[in-house]
């Protein structure tokens, strides 16, 4: 069970959280101008890296906040977390495959 550092509540067990998918996906500003494929890119397509992953978690059974986490999807090492309005935590070195 992962130990997830909520930026507001500190480290808590994974069971308190809900995974909310890849982070950094912004809703397009101009939906009508996008092609069907571009819309699909936004809705369905993901980086899914083996290595450093920018992701969102929701502290559902806690403060109720979504926040950013950077985690290695192989080692599960968490490089840090940050509130939504702050920059994502720095990663020591880029390990994306």
């Amino acid at each position: 069970m992962l130990l997830i550092p909520c930026p507001w509540c500190g480290e808590r067990a994974e069971a308190e959280f809900t995974y909310a998918g890849e982070g950094g996906i912004a809703r397009p500003k101009n939906p009508p101008e996008l092609s069907d494929q571009e819309w699909a890119d936004y809705v369905y397509y993901r980086h899914n890296p083996k290595g450093t992953h920018h992701e969102l978690w929701l502290h559902l059974h806690g403060c109720g906040k979504y926040f950013r986490v950077v985690r290695d999807t192989v080692s599960n090492q968490i490089y840090g977390s940050a509130p939504m309005l702050e920059a994502p935590p720095a990663v020591p070195e880029r390990k994306e495959v």
């Binding site: 998918g21 890849e22 699909a40 890119d41 369905y44 397509y45 993901r46 980086h47 899914n48 890296p49 083996k50 999807t73 495959v97």
Partner: peptide, 18 residues
């Protein structure tokens, strides 16, 4: 499970999560 890893090497993304 490694579909996205290979797709990435070939220069495209997939609607897949591992």
């Amino acid at each position: 499970g490694h579909a996205s890893v290979l797709a990435n090497l070939a220069g495209f993304r997939l609607p897949i999560e591992s």
